[in-house]
Structures are given as C-alpha cells and as structure tokens.
Amino acid sequence: MTLLVPRHELPADLGSRAVELDKSAARNVERLESSPAGFRLAFGTALLAAFTHCGEDPRAVGLATWEAWVTATQVGSALFATSTATTGTVKCRITDEVRVIPATGPQYHSNAENWNNAFWLAIACGEPDRMTALARVPLELLRASGAEYDAYVYPWIATLQTWWLGGGELGGLLDAAIAGTDPEGLEGDDRDLMLRVLHPPMNLFLNYLTGDHARFNEALAQALQWHKEYWTRADGGAAAGNASSFVALAPLAMACLARDAGFPLTVESEYLPKHLVARSWVGEFDTIST
C-alpha cells in the first residue's frame, strides 16, 4: 500500500516566478568568470529556481524543470571546485557552456550549508562524479569559510563523505551527528527546526545503511509530514510560500539513494518529485563534460 503525503497549498504565480528566477540565475552565472565572488548569489538563485519549477511541476515532468535542477547542481559543484583550487582557473560546465572561472580558495560561500545542498542536488540528479568531488572537499575548507554552525554539522558531513568514498567506520561519526541534533534542551523555533528539518535526514540515512525497508518508509513519511508542518507553522504559515518549502531536498536525496539500492518505496508526495526519484531524466543529455 502506498502512503500519500500531500503538499501544502502553494502560491498561484509559480510559473512566472520560475521564468524570472531562470533569467536571474542565468545572469548570475554569466558573471562568474569575471566575478567568482558571485557564487553565493548564483547558487542561491539557481536552487530557488529548481524548487520553484517543482512547485509548478511537482512531478518534474517538464524539460525546463530538469534543466533548472541540472543548473543548480552544476553551480553547486563549480562553487566547490573553484574554492578548493587556490591558483589559476577552473573549467566548469554550467548550462550548455564551459566556463573558465578563477580559483578562489576558501570563501564564505564555500560553507557547510552550501556543501550539503550541493551534495543533495548531486544525489537527486544522479551525478556520482560530482558526489565524489564533493566528498573530497576537506572539512577544513568548509570551516575556513567563517560561517558558524552547530556542532553536529561537521560530523554529519564527515559521515556522508566517508560513506561515499568508502574510507572508514561510520558508526562514531553518525552517532556524533545524531547526538548533536537532539532537540532536548532547545526551545521554540530552534527546537522545531531541529526536530522537523535537520534530524530526519540522519534517521533516514541510518535506516538506509541498515537496509531496513519498512523503517525507512516510516521515517520518510514522517520526514515529509514534519517538513510540511515546519513550513506551514513557521511565522504563522507565512513561510509556506518560501520556495525552500516546495521540495524536501534532503529527504528527496535519501529517497533517491534508497530507490537506487532497490528499496521498495511506499511513500509518495509532491515534496518528492516523482521523475527525480525515478531517475527518468538522468542520461538524457550530457551535463558534466568540459
């Protein structure tokens, strides 16, 4: 039996929003070769464009939706490719062009939050080479961004990197990450964010690692319900129109991993665009060659 987790009501003008965000993302990408400091804006805009397309096209049926997701993935990967290099230039394919972007070394935008989003995008778009490149980004570079995060963030990233590269024991790292997301002792918005948004992907990942299909599906349904509750409760529901609410990005990445591993997924939701989970677009055209 399939469990459906319905999405909250979205604004009516998402089609026009998506078009404008595509234009803005394209302008920001064009500037990167002369001003790589613009990666922060370029990645943020591309990510919002991808989410907004899925708001309008919740099953990710349309080519424009896939192109927006590919662009966001390419920008996220390029952000870290240029940040890990300290001299010269880096060739990065973004949209249908190879861009020659100056190396920057660590920047504020090469932070843990952007790393997580870039990694989730690479998973969702079926890009293992990008996952490998991101998994090799040193934690020291993320810390050097100067952005401050809760203590659990770096063990969580280390868990994902170690898992993907197959380089060591995950138990201690994952335990430390999960312990750091314990909502006990937190209050108000911080507790709500931790309980409903930040902790669920770790629980999903644990069930993915153990191969427990039933628990994974239970955790996926709960993660989507909590995602919905978080965005509709925040600011009295005003945040429900935020494009970040349109797709549950981290649970989507976990659902893609589970599907690739042969898990029978018994949960469906517009928060998990069907054709991203099913890999319907992967391989339709080259997205990575330089």
Rank of each mutant, 00 (worst) to 15 (best):
Y208V: 02
E184F: 08
L220M: 11
A261V: 03
F216K: 06
N203C: 08
Q222W: 05
E229D: 15
P200Y: 01
K274Y: 06
H227P: 07
R233V: 08
K274F: 05
P251F: 06
G211N: 06
D190I: 00
V247Q: 10
L252H: 10
T181D: 12
R259A: 14
A238V: 14
T232S: 12
N203G: 15
R233F: 09
D192G: 08
A258F: 00
G262Q: 09
E218L: 07
G188Q: 03
A243V: 04
S245H: 00
R233P: 00
F263Q: 09
G188Y: 03
H227Q: 14
H199R: 15
R259L: 04
R215A: 13
T210Y: 04
F246C: 07
L198N: 03
A221G: 11
A255G: 06
L209T: 10
D190M: 01
E270T: 07
A214M: 02
L206T: 14
E229F: 13
V197D: 07
T232Y: 09
G262N: 09
S244F: 15
L198V: 04
E187G: 08
M202C: 09
L204W: 09
A255R: 01
A240H: 04
L265S: 06
V197G: 06
L195E: 15
D189R: 10
A223T: 03
A258N: 01
Q225W: 06
N207W: 13
A261C: 07
L186W: 08
G241T: 11
F246M: 13
P201S: 10
D235M: 15
H213D: 13
A255M: 01
A248P: 09
K228T: 07
